[in-house]
Simulated scan of single mutants.
Amino acid sequence: MTKTVLVSGASGFIGSHVAARLTEEGHRVRAMTRRPGDYRGAGEPVAADVSDPGSLTAAFAGADAAYYLIHSLGSDDFEQRDADAARAFSDAAAAAGVERIIYLGGLGANNGTLSAHLRSRREVEKILGAGPVPVTVLRAAVVIGHGGISWEMTRQLADRLPAMVTPRWVRTRTQPVALADAVRYLTGVLEPPEARGRVYEIGGPEVLRYLDMLQRVARIRGRRLPNLTVPLLTPRLSSAWLKFVTDVDAATARNLVDSMTTEVVVRDDAITRLVPGAPIGYDEAVRLALADRERSARPDHEQPVR
């Protein structure tokens, strides 16, 4: 059944791919962006900004469903910004009579040990769920794909370092998911009635340590990456170091590193029965991300605005 779908963050890493997949499946996509004149992605660009609640009314007009795929991770006050944005989005969805919101949040057991970033993801989930519009939540760890901040940090470390002296958090377990699978799951929950109001956990077929992820990227790139783990590198020191080694800005690096001390693995695989299909393994996800990066670097390639 064809739906009219509002995709927030349509010019971003996940949103651009979700908008493209929905368009391919025959849905009418309203691509929400702050700069519609610059938008080159799939769907019809509509001007709106979650920090300006009044701008959301026109964006939601006629929408059957809406994707919430935005965050303020690069801001020092991201928790407050994200909470305010979620309330504005929820209110606008309710006023427009949208039948469901689909939200991509973060994995991690809510046992009092979540980082500020993951707590914020869970708070956004709670705020959206408190409104009258049913919310379908997908919780993920690292999404492996060209354009993703966490993946880009991993790639740059594996490419640029001759060896690593790492903190203990590199031994934290995580369950990365390929971009193609994340998009497949996000679009796969749009129509099934049983997905309304549900929380799903998504991940790839492997549980890995961050150290494993780095060393496997290096191996795929034809390099070795020796490692020495030391206990004195705190998350704050690690993020300061990342600022000099990678292109990730300081605030984003700090928030991401804080999250890397929390184990994020799938405990419930219900999504695999709702949206069946063999998930892509980590090495293949890495190769796909590297191939996309190579294609985007070609002079004739028209890149979407991130």
Rank of each mutant, 00 (worst) to 15 (best):
P205C: 01
R184M: 09
D212V: 00
Y210S: 14
R209V: 14
R219V: 04
M213C: 14
G197Y: 06
Y200E: 15
T187G: 02
L211I: 00
P193F: 02
E201F: 07
E206H: 08
L190S: 04
V199A: 13
E191H: 09
L186W: 11
V177A: 12
A195F: 02
V199D: 15
Y185D: 13
Y210D: 14
G204I: 09
G197F: 08
R198L: 05
L179D: 12
I202N: 12
I202R: 13
D212R: 01
R209C: 14
D181E: 01
A218I: 14
R209F: 06
D181G: 01
A180M: 04
V177N: 11
A195H: 05
A180I: 06
E191V: 06
L186Q: 11
L214V: 12
L186K: 07
V207I: 11
T187H: 03
M213P: 10
A178I: 06
V207T: 15
Q175P: 15
V183P: 08
V207L: 05
V199Q: 10
R196K: 07
L211F: 00
D212G: 00
L179N: 12
V189Q: 11
E206C: 05
L211A: 00
L214Q: 13
A178H: 03
V177H: 10
T187Y: 02
V199T: 15
A218Y: 03
D181Q: 01
V189K: 11
E194Y: 04
R196D: 09
A182W: 07
R198T: 12
L214D: 04
D181N: 01
G197E: 11
P176R: 02
L190V: 03
G204Q: 08
E191K: 10
L208H: 13
G204E: 08
A195Y: 03
V207E: 15
A178V: 08
L214G: 05
E201K: 11
V217N: 07
D212E: 02
Q215H: 00
E191D: 14
E191Y: 05
L179K: 09
R198M: 12
A182T: 14
T187D: 04
P205W: 01
P192C: 10
Y200Q: 15
L211R: 00
L186F: 09
I202D: 10
R219S: 04
I220W: 01
P205Y: 00
R209A: 15
P176V: 03
A195K: 04
E201Y: 09
